[in-house]
């Protein structure tokens, strides 16, 4: 599942991943994401950070703290590229990985498949 308030990003990710045989669900904000999360049970959630309503950090925390969704792999997908943002995502929000936009389609697809296969552990 991809959560982003920018239509172009949703389309781009959908195009990259569906071409490789993945089913892609999209959501435009945190509320829609939480609803679809319960219905669709995605294997991976890709989260923008700066969105209207819930931020990606907040949404990630909610996903990781609720029992039904805590084992879902969550990665940030954001233009924010500071080390401080990455630490906040990985440590405070419990994200499993962090991608910085813009992405290279081929590399990104490889990374997503790594996350689906062998999500990293917390030590």
């Amino acid at each position: 599942m991809v959560v982003d308030d920018e239509e172009d990003i949703l389309n781009l990710i959908e195009r990259i991943l569906s071409r490789r045989g993945h089913r892609v669900i999209t959501a435009r904000d945190g509320r829609e994401a939480l609803r679809k999360l319960k219905e669709e049970r995605p294997d991976l959630v890709l989260l923008d950070i700066m969105m209207p309503g819930l931020s990606g950090y907040q949404l990630c925390k909610i996903i990781k703290q609720s029992r039904e969704t805590s084992s879902t792999t969550v990665a940030m997908l954001t233009v924010k590229s500071d080390d401080e943002d990455k630490v906040r995502a990985l440590e405070d929000s419990g994200a499993d990985w962090y991608f910085t936009k813009p992405i290279d389609a081929k590399r990104f697809a490889r990374s997503v498949e790594w996350l689906l296969r062998n999500p990293p552990r917390r030590g």
């Binding site: 080390d83 401080e84 990455k86 630490v87 990985l90 552990r121 917390r122 030590g123």
Partner: peptide
């Protein structure tokens, strides 16, 4: 680092400190 998330977070903090 070790190839896990807590280590990566530690490495990012070293980058912040070094900068």
């Amino acid at each position: 680092l070790n190839p896990d998330i807590p280590s990566v977070a530690g490495a990012l903090k070293v980058r912040i400190l070094a900068r």
